[in-house]
Measured scan of single mutants.
Amino acid sequence: PAHPYDRLKTTSTDPVSDIDVTRREAYLSSEEFKEKFGMTKEAFYKLPKWKQNKFKMAVQLF
């Protein structure tokens, strides 16, 4: 299930529990994912792991 970005980011005051914290981005809706990352999930997962992590750090999901 998708969760709002505000509850997934590492600085959230009301974090979602029971998620894989190493894959926070996977819980974003497709729309919100595209808004935050500027690309689709499919394109994101084709990137090298280090680049994925760099993007995730930039949007507080790492």
Rank of each mutant, 00 (worst) to 15 (best):
P1R: 07
P1G: 13
A2H: 15
H3C: 15
H3R: 06
P4Q: 05
P4R: 05
Y5L: 05
Y5T: 04
Y5N: 07
Y5H: 07
Y5K: 04
D6W: 02
D6P: 00
R7F: 10
R7Y: 09
R7S: 15
L8P: 08
L8V: 08
L8H: 09
L8Y: 08
K9E: 11
K9M: 12
K9P: 07
K9T: 14
T10Q: 06
T10H: 06
T10W: 08
T11A: 03
T11W: 05
S12P: 05
S12F: 04
S12Q: 06
S12H: 05
S12A: 14
T13C: 14
T13D: 13
T13V: 09
T13W: 05
T13L: 14
D14K: 08
D14P: 05
D14W: 09
P15G: 05
P15D: 01
P15R: 03
P15Y: 04
P15S: 03
V16W: 05
V16L: 11
V16M: 03
S17E: 12
S17D: 13
S17V: 12
S17N: 12
D18N: 13
D18S: 08
I19S: 02
I19H: 03
D20V: 03
D20W: 01
V21P: 10
V21G: 07
V21M: 09
T22E: 07
T22I: 06
T22D: 07
R23Y: 07
R24D: 04
R24N: 07
R24I: 11
R24T: 13
A26D: 08
A26M: 15
Y27H: 09
Y27W: 02
Y27Q: 04
L28W: 03
L28A: 01
L28C: 07
S29L: 01
S30W: 10
S30V: 14
E31Y: 09
E32G: 03
E32K: 02
F33A: 01
K34C: 15
K34V: 13
E35S: 10
E35R: 08
E35W: 12
E35N: 07
E35P: 01
K36A: 10
K36L: 15
F37E: 00
F37T: 01
G38L: 07
G38W: 08
M39N: 00
M39A: 01
M39Y: 03
T40F: 03
T40M: 08
T40Y: 06
T40C: 14
K41A: 08
K41W: 11
E42Q: 09
E42M: 11
E42C: 11
E42Y: 13
E42G: 06
A43W: 06
Y45V: 07
Y45W: 06
Y45R: 06
Y45L: 04
Y45F: 04
K46N: 14
K46H: 14
L47Q: 06
L47W: 03
L47F: 04
P48E: 03
P48T: 05
P48W: 13
K49F: 10
K49M: 13
W50Y: 10
W50I: 04
W50L: 03
K51R: 13
K51L: 15
K51P: 00
K51T: 12
Q52C: 01
N53R: 07
N53Q: 13
K54P: 01
K54M: 14
K54A: 12
F55M: 15
F55I: 13
F55T: 02
F55P: 01
F55Y: 14
K56Y: 02
K56R: 11
M57A: 07
M57F: 06
M57P: 01
A58W: 07
A58V: 09
A58M: 12
V59D: 11
V59G: 01
Q60E: 14
Q60A: 11
Q60M: 13
L61C: 11
L61G: 09
L61E: 05
F62L: 13
F62R: 09
F62H: 15
F62E: 12
